[in-house]
Design a protein around this nucleic acid. Structure first.
Lengths: 380, 380
DNA sequence: CGGTTTGTCTTCGATTTCGAAGGAAGATGC
DNA sequence: GCATCTTCCTTCGAAATCGAAGACAAACCG
């Protein structure tokens, strides 16, 4: 648990280590293919990494028709990453090994409205507890990462004009964590982390749109296999104007934003108006599963609105898949009405091979994404 | 004019040559910075390229505070590219040298409705004329490229379900040209070529949306400095549903597509209904310039509709700039109403540094783009 | 079951690339 | 006008990388 040590990695070793850690490669041959290096060079570097104790050989993989590859893994004693995914009222916290595999994951209630210092201090204290209880002995902490339910400027690691995070505007989260840990730090929007995490479960899909449908609506975009940030704010779809009969003012100051109709928060308040009170989006899903018609109708309508927005983006970006995550994603009618809207209205050329599916990597996807991005900087 | 010779380029030489040809670098020092190679290695390779006659040293560049760099250029005798941009009724044809600089450009009337064989044969004949009249002696033809006003499958080089190109559906344009020339061939959607060409004029802008507003509405997307194709159909914005009072059926079978309201073709037929007949989009612009109120109102409305669609995409992609090209782009009211719609409705975070401007590289942009993409394959 | 095919991994000499040092040529400042 | 700085480019030994050849190991197939 000593921490603050630089990994003894130099040159091409880092690239190879990263490929193994991120799960892109698990044999020397695969490394050679993906890194572009000659097989001989790969063997040399891998041997060095094994000597250093960062990589281990572990059993053999499945054959592709010839000799079985010797499977490579990042050593479990090489280090630990501490990652979190902050939500409005709950946070998921976890420890990962240097291959990005979770060692522990916990969900704890928290209140982001207490402001950045209180929340981040609480997060750090939780990390300490986790490390004490589950941190493998001898494995130093190598990096810290967290997801934020609002826009983050990637360059500075600051939160930028978030809608429901009082006190956080312009707070330098990355700087704050760096001062505390002196380690590689990652601060990223939660939907973006979800997207990165999910992308690992969609090999071969280089262009992905990952929707996070919870109390808010977020979206992470993977273009060419990498997270697309634009100037920092890319992926927003919640403040798109939708076609409706009524007219509602959104918190952003414009009328008829998608968020005002289709976000979990909006659905819950609409349900409350009909006399059905729910506390969190997951309760809403439970009502849908129970066949409560009011809830189902609302979710259906939300799916249709989201689908209509996605229509524009699918024609434009022409992705391989749309993945739906977030706490509302388990509601079957949501997916099916998104599907219906997209398939009905998009160009056949764009939907020809388009897959629309729920998350493959489950509730820890965002933590896995944080691990993946952190590894890029940790493994210099 | 002999042609069909492979360039004697191997290994890193190609990368360097391409950087010079594409205009990204013009000195050894710049090459070292951009290619990531050591300065010494660059010097070696450049010397080889000069010995082969592919590069020439030509005067000196401007100093950045120290010794002036020796400017490098692709030799004018190294080869020629023949490129075209096919439109519905007109085509631009040109010859470029291996640095992508135009040697000749001509605009000729043509009729794409005659079908692929007739049109491509006509194009080839035109290339032959140009080569005879303006082809520098001793410079062999090295590649052929063309833009198509419809969707192109990048892998096969086929036209895929175009809307206004009878007889072209599924025609293997690339194969046809390859059979004729036996040279590197490029076949790409016209808006995509425009985007690539325009991107050269926007250094530092890695994410770009380039709108082509002519008789149709097309859009090319540059993400991370490279053309984004998705599964081949990316960039379509013309079949997005817009908010209008009336209801018009689009040729794609859906109601209220952007194209049915804001394309040059739609505007012209709307104008015809008001008793004003025009033949081509450029005439429409002339009317607007003359202050004909009907034309101006139509263009304004088109700009607003386009702007509203762009709104969604700007929030989502968060680009550095939106560039408007195509024959309608010279109509001032079009740009200003696009600007108004985007700035009014987009998130401040997304429009903070967003530039919305007309094309910088003029009418030859698409040809330059074709050259740029062709060079990537020609300079192996 | 034995040959064939396919794929993995290592060895070793040839090639490429790097990087530090220094010369060349102009900008800058006194 | 002269010293100093910056940038450009080259030289040359050290280090990394390549690639062909071959050993190894399993799947495939009559």
């Amino acid at each position: 648990m000593s921490g603050k040590e630089r990994l003894p990695v130099r040159g091409a070793q880092g690239d190879l280590l990263r490929l193994v850690a991120n799960g892109h490669a698990e044999s020397r041959a695969e490394l050679a293919r993906l890194s572009g290096l000659a097989a001989s060079s790969v063997s040399l570097r891998v041997e060095e990494l094994i000597d250093t104790g960062l990589l281990v050989e572990e059993g053999s993989g499945t054959s592709r028709g010839g000799r079985r590859p010797r499977r490579l893994q990042v050593s479990s004693t090489a280090g630990v990453l501490a990652v979190a995914d902050l939500g409005a009222h709950h946070a998921r916290l976890g420890l990962l090994d240097l291959s990005g595999t979770p060692l522990v994951v916990e969900e704890r209630p928290c209140d982001i409205a207490l402001g950045p210092e209180a929340t981040l201090d609480w997060m750090a204290a939780s990390f300490d507890e986790l490390l004490l209880a589950h941190g493998p002995s001898g494995a130093p902490l190598r990096g810290v990462g967290t997801g934020i339910p609002g826009p983050v400027d990637p360059a500075s690691g600051r939160v930028v004009s978030p809608s429901r995070m009082p006190g956080w505007n312009n707070f330098p989260v990355a700087e704050y964590l760096d001062a505390r840990y002196g380690l590689p730090v990652l601060v990223e929007n939660d939907a973006n982390l979800l997207a990165v995490g999910e992308a690992r479960a969609w090999p071969g899909c280089d262009n992905l749109m990952v929707l996070k449908a919870g109390s808010g609506i977020g979206c992470g975009v993977i273009v060419n296999g990498r997270l697309h940030r634009g100037r920092g704010a890319a992926g927003d779809i919640s403040h798109v104007r939708v076609r409706t009969d009524s007219s509602v003012m959104c918190s952003c100051g414009h009328p008829d934003c998608l968020e005002a109709y289709a976000s979990g928060a909006a659905l819950m308040s609409a349900l409350a108006e009909q006399g059905i009170a729910v506390r969190r989006p997951a309760d809403l899903v439970a009502l849908v599963d129970d066949g409560v018609p009011e809830a189902t109708a609302l979710i259906r309508n939300a799916g249709r609105l989201i689908g209509e927005v996605l229509t524009v983006l699918v024609n434009f970006l022409n992705p391989d898949a749309i993945v739906v995550g977030g706490s509302l994603s388990t509601a079957e009618p949501l997916i099916s009405s998104i599907r219906a809207a997209v398939y009905e209205r998009c160009l056949p050329l764009a939907t020809r091979d388009l897959e629309i599916a729920v998350t493959r990597s489950g509730p820890d996807a965002a933590l896995l994404g944080a691990g993946s991005l952190l590894l890029d900087t940790v493994l210099s």
